[in-house]
């Protein structure tokens, strides 16, 4: 069975992603060991709270390089919420703090005129069929909690958006990395279906 490392860098509630992955049949382990992360077949980077605090916590745990490598080296990778945002170069939430720089672009505040955070379910609008998110015309609802959103330099990495005061990036793909702004682990049932498909793609790739 493919081994999934869920990166544990000591912030907030990282257990939900782990439990949800286990519930869909993954051999997922929470870990803060570089060796475990390097040895895993697939890696998940969760994240909640403040961008700068998450980047700092990752660094304090000595996991910055292991996280960046996992997102770049062709192994299946899943970033969730701030775990998605950290893949970009920078965030307006924490000026001066460098992101992991895996995906070109920055993270900016949600547009004025909408409530912040967006704390609600929203319907994904897919730009194309996606092996994890479903066909372009399928309807899936995910739970969002965020005040900032990613703005990739290359718009072709965007695979899903939601309508929240305009189009807000909900999911991006670059290489083997999938990163989502929403919380699939808190979006029963559609989010669990997404995680299950992701786990199945790992098995197929193995």
């Amino acid at each position: 069975m493919t081994r999934v490392a869920v990166i544990d860098y000591g912030i907030g509630n990282l257990h939900s992603a782990h439990k949800a992955l286990c519930s869909v049949g993954a051999d997922a382990r929470l870990t803060r060991s570089v060796a475990d992360i390097d040895a895993a077949d697939a890696v998940v980077l969760p994240g909640v709270g403040n961008f700068g605090a998450c980047i700092q916590a990752l660094s304090d745990c000595g996991l910055t390089d292991a996280s960046r490598s996992a997102a770049l080296d062709g192994r299946p990778f899943l970033g969730i919420c701030v775990g998605m945002q950290m893949l970009f170069d920078a965030s307006d939430e924490s000026p001066g703090v460098a992101g992991l720089g895996v995906i070109s672009g920055k993270v900016t505040w949600l547009p004025a005129g909408v409530k912040r955070p967006q704390m609600q379910w929203n319907r994904l609008q897919l730009s194309a069929d996606d092996p994890c998110l479903g066909t372009a015309h399928s309807e899936s609802w995910m739970y969002f909690v965020h005040s900032l959103h990613a703005e990739p330099t290359d718009a072709t990495v965007v695979v899903a958006t939601v309508d929240y005061g305009g189009d807000v990036v909900a999911a991006v793909r670059q290489g083997a990395a999938l990163a989502v702004q929403f919380h699939p682990e808190k979006s029963s049932p559609d989010g669990l279906v997404m995680l299950q498909r992701w786990v199945e793609t790992l098995a197929a790739a193995a």
């Binding site: 939900s16 439990k19 519930s23 739970y143 682990e185 808190k186 029963s188």
Partner: peptide, 8 residues
């Protein structure tokens, strides 16, 4: 609850 319920 957290191990069996997958809504916030």
């Amino acid at each position: 609850v957290a191990s069996r319920v997958f809504i916030p």
